[in-house]
Amino acid sequence: MIDRNRYRETFSHIRVSPEMRTRILNMERPARKSRRRAAALAAAVLAVTLSAAAVAFGGTLTDWFAREWAERTGGELSGGQAAVIDSLTQEVGQRAVSGGVTVTVDSVTVGTESLWVLLDAEGMEFDPDGLYTFGTPMADIQPDPNDGQHGGSGWNVSSVGVTESGSLRLLLRFSAVLFGGARLDDGGYTLELSLGDLTRVDNGREEIICAGEWAFSIPLTAESLSPVLTVESAAVTGDVMAPDGKGQEERERREVVLYDLRVTATGLSFRHDGSVGLLMQVAAVLEDGTVVRSGSGGGSRTDDGSWYDTWEWPVPIDVGSIAALRIGETEIPLQ
């Protein structure tokens, strides 16, 4: 007989791993140098807002990155970093109108395997405390950088504030797994965007506030190519999922050899033989000691059976300021 008690007894065995528990309990709130703002900016997530009020955000992508940097590290963007972000960012200015709402692609920051696209929506009233997105956003790179092979991409869109003039600012974040050496910033690609149904999110419920579709075709011109630091191979130690010899897999601590490590302003990629699944955290350690933990990432098995992993920095980094990589428990100095 199945009943509530048996269900509870069964699922009481589902628990966070000790490693994840330690990691979460060791999270620290970044120190704030300035007085706490009255608002929180929801960056790339759909969630219940906790802030009392939102400030108008009429800034540029660099301003947004500066806020992200302050949230994550407690520090300010360096001049070098701001220069890197400016060099990777292109103004776009394309507009589309649907359902009485005009959506404008303001600008795009183009990384090696990731994009940040700043959008404006105007034509109706927006709640500064509200969270908005598009119900059916589609993003595609043409031509296909992976030429139809493995890899893939992901994206999400969310509002980041309302400007003083009342238009809604949204940020689309796009990441791709490009294991064949292609780069989004080499000037040969176009971002095809189709944004459907402007939607407000409130307590988990979604409400379409303007049914419509806004489409854009954005050539990704390279203002400059990010320099690439390479490391031929490195042995790192950390958590992996490894076969236990009985047809299952279990978490353990192990040394893994990574090769073809590539560090750019917007992320890190490397390969390994794919015999284990990596559960290691990745971070960049800057010359001034700041640790920048990676954001999202992805991976793909390649034709030769090896595994290609890619990680995104949450904010573009001045490659010249990266002193080391931290992968799992290992720190790899960079020259």
Binding site: V45, A47, V48, M241, E249
Partner: peptide, 26 residues
């Protein structure tokens, strides 16, 4: 619930990480 829903909307995992690989046993 919101974070899980957000993750499900992204095609990221479906296209790049086969779900039956590296699954630990409870």
């Amino acid at each position: 619930v919101n974070e899980a829903r957000r993750l499900c909307r992204s095609p990221w995992r479906r296209r790049t990480v086969p779900l039956d690989e590296h699954q630990p046993e409870e």
